[in-house]
Nucleic acid binder design. Structure first.
Length: 813
DNA sequence: GGATACCCTTTACC
DNA sequence: ACGGGTAAAGGGTATCC
């Protein structure tokens, strides 16, 4: 029989000592289908050059006798084949060693330790990755699958244990033409009595799907809205939850922060209540895998924690200062959480429960809408990288790069390099840092008529143009080799890594152009996926966990980068412009007497001289730009500047305005000051404005919310060597019984205290604590520091003005 | 006892 | 452990004269 099949969730199982992939998905007529498929697992044994045929026969004979016995199975080598392959760009002769069970690939490899063996590889690839590589059942595409329907006895009655309309043992897999797929998404969220996972009761659970909204509770059942369903107790509610998930039959169960909170909480409360949380299609309970950040896996249903995908793939594009559901949802979908003030459940009054239910429901509504909104990004990442959504939504950028490489190695006939083992990682982490990018020392001042040139995809374009990678790195100087900093050499023969990267950049360009013609969100998401892959490729080669780790290539990339930027600065200056600033991949300069057209012609000329795929572009022309001095030292500060485009749009970099660990008062004041100065070309009004703020502070007119300082807690309180104000604040929160987790933004203010308390941390108070803000602190540590360097550009000494020592003298105005 | 160098820490830039 | 290096800046503390 044949079906049209869309793979969604990937898993595998063992039967009689062999491995089988088990893929859950949908058919075109929306049936839940399960595909059982197998491929013959294997590993590679790379032979030393010049190994004789006789020797190969001898080794092969020994390899074919290898047997690994464990309590549950016996793994054997079934056959071997000799292949011509590439390994790290070099031609090699390799034995393909087929084995019966993939889980024993490593012990089998360990036994193949003959003298003639150069290396053993691909025994450490995850089963699903290997399966997709071999069988080409790439997630999120439609396939025609033919095979036999599973009969009752096969695989020990596997089909009877799985909630599916159809189970097929796949024989032939072909890509189908169909494209449309709208999966069934179910969002969920829980509310609890205690924040610590599993400690308190789960009070309610909300579920939101397409045309479906429910809140399940066992708490308050009088006068409840229609969407609220009441249960006898917590256990009963948990069973209700499992039933609703089964009835809704989602392809994706989606939460926000659910890997760390909702799902583990549910699992713990279910265990406590002796309820089986049988969410899996095979009635199994959720499993948690992975060390530091465990991921919740549900058999047959892809559990997605949106937070994790947003954190790695989207956060760099967001303005949100935290990745809380509230902030992210309000930025991406323009909707917020409902207001609700939390209390212990026994203190919640009857009429307040209604608000609590609404609050809980809204969280799932936001999660559902967020999932819909970022769906194109997740799907396109999955298609481009060829990994299932479960992994795509949890892997970091380096893992994405690596998976992209693994799924594209076949084009280069390459055997995959191994993952570094523990002590290799240790050694790599001890490596000295290599020199990075060049940053130009600016001179403080207010400048007019500027232009900014940027290199497009700077690092990737250097890696591609100069062929910098593990496989093109030479051990010693060779004829025609590229020499970098007189110490490392790279072959001119293109390595597969730069070739893949070049392809990524090309594809990115073409999808970007396609999007300009037709604004399809999927095209944009695909273009963005390629862009992120390209950007992460430089970091990947310097990352200690990478299979294709090559710090020499990273160091060469930055060395060549520094050279180009310095050369660019010289050329710009020689062409009667004046460079004001440069950081990594771009320069800001004064046009002086040159026109914009001349500048664009100059850009063209520069581009004609660039090698390979390197390219410069005009970022923009700017009417004014502001650079300030460093607070310590009388020279210009790097990474702090503000620009105003010709249309009056202001771009602020590095200033306190953009730093979330400064109070809103200082940030807003500074941004207004910068805006005034850039728009007016002088500091007159700005100074008046600042004086007004200073007056308001002294008169205690500032609202409390504007003086709150927020700092992230990055590790457990006990691990801090330096006890800073935010650590004290976190301690106070813990004492008050408030939730304190790593990664939280700790909010506090500096209050007036007795004279004996000298340190800032001794004046820390939590937002709810009674007290008055410390005028001296806010003036001397927030307001003045935020703007004094800006006024210094106009020779105004703000400190003296604030102290009342000096009346306004407007030198320089 | 105040200035100062230095460490620890957070957050930004690219 | 789960891209990289460069840089500013605040708070706390040790050290100097």
């Amino acid at each position: 029989m044949q079906i049209k099949f869309m793979p969604v969730d990937y898993d595998y199982f063992d039967w009689k000592g062999r491995n089988y992939a088990l893929i859950t998905g949908r058919t075109k007529d929306w049936k839940r289908a399960v595909i059982v498929d197998s491929f013959q697992p294997y590993l590679w044994v790379i032979l030393k050059p010049g190994t004789s045929e006789k020797k190969i026969k001898e080794i092969t004979g020994k390899i074919e006798k290898i047997k690994i016995e464990s309590s549950t199975r016996i793994t054997r080598v079934e056959k071997t084949e000799v292949h011509k392959k590439n390994f790290l760009g070099k031609k090699v002769l390799a034995l393909k060693v087929f084995i019966t069970n993939y889980k024993d690939a490593h012990p089998v490899a360990d036994k193949i330790d003959f003298n003639e063996v150069l290396a053993r590889r691909e025994y450490d690839l995850p089963y699903i990755t290997k399966y997709i590589m071999e069988r080409k059942l790439v997630p999120n595409y439609w396939y025609n699958i033919s095979g036999e329907i599973l009969s009752g006895e096969e695989f020990g009655g596997l089909d009877s244990g799985i909630e599916a309309d159809i189970c097929i043992k796949a024989e032939k897999i072909d890509k189908a033409r169909e494209k449309e797929f709208s999966p069934r998404i179910l969002a969920y969220d829980i509310e609890t009595d205690e924040f610590e996972v599993g400690k308190g009761n789960i009070l309610m659970i909300s579920l939101v799907g397409k045309n479906f909204k429910k809140v399940l509770t066992w708490k308050s059942c009088q006068d409840k809205p229609d969407y609220v369903e009441c249960y006898r107790d917590e256990a009963d509610m948990l069973e209700g939850f499992v039933n609703y998930v089964e009835k809704q039959s989602p392809d994706f169960l989606v939460g926000y922060y659910s890997d760390k909170f909702d799902l583990p909480y549910l699992k713990m409360r279910a265990a406590e209540n002796k309820v089986k949380l049988s969410l899996g299609l095979d009635k199994s309970q959720p499993k948690f895998t992975g060390g530091r950040n465990p991921s919740g896996k549900i058999f047959g249903i892809t559990h997605i924690d949106l937070f994790r995908f947003i954190e790695t793939a989207l956060s760099q594009y967001l303005q949100s200062e935290t990745l809380s559901l509230n902030e992210v949802a309000s930025e991406l979908i323009g909707e917020k959480k409902l207001d609700f003030s939390f209390k212990k459940s026994d203190k919640i009054k009857a009429h307040e429960w209604k608000d609590y239910f609404a609050y809980n429901l809204q969280d799932s509504v936001l999660t559902y809408k967020l999932a819909e909104k970022i769906w194109p990004d997740m799907i396109e990442f999955s298609k481009v990288i060829q990994e299932p959504l479960f992994d795509i939504t949890r892997d970091g950028m380096s893992q994405h790069v690596e998976n992209y490489i693994l799924h594209n190695l076949e084009k280069f006939n390459e055997i995959a390099e191994k993952r570094p083992i523990h002590n290799e990682i240790q050694l790599r982490m001890e490596r000295k840092k290599y020199e990075g990018a060049f940053v130009f020392q600016p001179e403080a001042g207010l400048y007019e008529n500027l232009a900014v040139f940027d290199f497009t995809s700077f690092w990737p374009s250097i890696i591609v143009s100069f062929n910098l990678s593990r496989t093109s790195l030479l051990e010693k100087k060779e004829k025609n080799a590229l020499e970098v900093e007189k110490k490392v050499y790279f072959s001119k023969e293109k390595g597969f890594f730069p070739l893949m990267l070049e392809e990524i950049i090309k594809l990115r360009k073409s999808y970007k152009q396609e999007y300009k013609k037709n604004e399809n969100p999927l095209t944009k998401a695909r273009s963005n996926a390629y862009k992120l892959l390209a950007n992460a490729s430089y970091g990947y080669q310097g990352f200690f966990g990478a299979r294709y780790y090559c710090p020499e290539a990273s160091a060469a990339t930055t060395a060549i980068g520094r050279e180009f930027v310095k050369k660019l600065i010289d050329m710009v200056n020689k062409e009667s412009y004046k460079v004001i600033y440069a950081d990594t991949d771009g320069v800001s300069f004064l046009l002086q007497k040159n026109t914009q057209k001349q500048t664009l012609d100059f850009l063209k000329k520069l581009n004609s001289e660039l090698p390979g795929i390197m390219e410069l572009e005009l970022e923009d022309f700017y009417k004014r730009g502001l650079w300030v001095t460093k607070r310590t030292g009388d020279f210009g500060a790097k990474k702090k500047y503000a620009l105003m485009s010709e249309k009056g749009k202001i771009k602020i970099r590095g200033f306190e305005t953009v730093r979330r660990d400064w109070c809103n008062l200082a940030r807003e004041m500074q941004s207004k000051v910068i805006e005034m100065i850039l728009k007016e070309g002088n500091g007159k009004n700005a100074l008046e404005y600042v004086k007004e703020i200073i007056k308001e502070i002294k008169e205690r007119k500032i609202k409390k919310e504007d003086i709150m300082i927020r700092t992230q807690l990055k590790k457990p309180i006990s691990e801090y060597k330096s006890i800073t104000p935010h650590v004290i604040a976190a301690g106070k929160m813990k004492e008050a019984g408030m939730p304190v987790d790593i990664g939280m933004l700790i909010e506090y203010y500096i209050a007036e205290t007795r004279e004996t308390k000298k340190l800032v941390r001794e004046k820390v108070k939590l937002p709810d604590e009674k007290g008055e803000y410390n005028i001296k602190y806010y003036l001397g540590h927030q307001i003045i520091p935020a703007v004094e360097n800006i006024f210094e550009v106009f020779n105004v000494n703000l400190k003296e003005i604030a102290d009342g020592k000096k009346q306004t003298r407007l030198d320089g105005f």
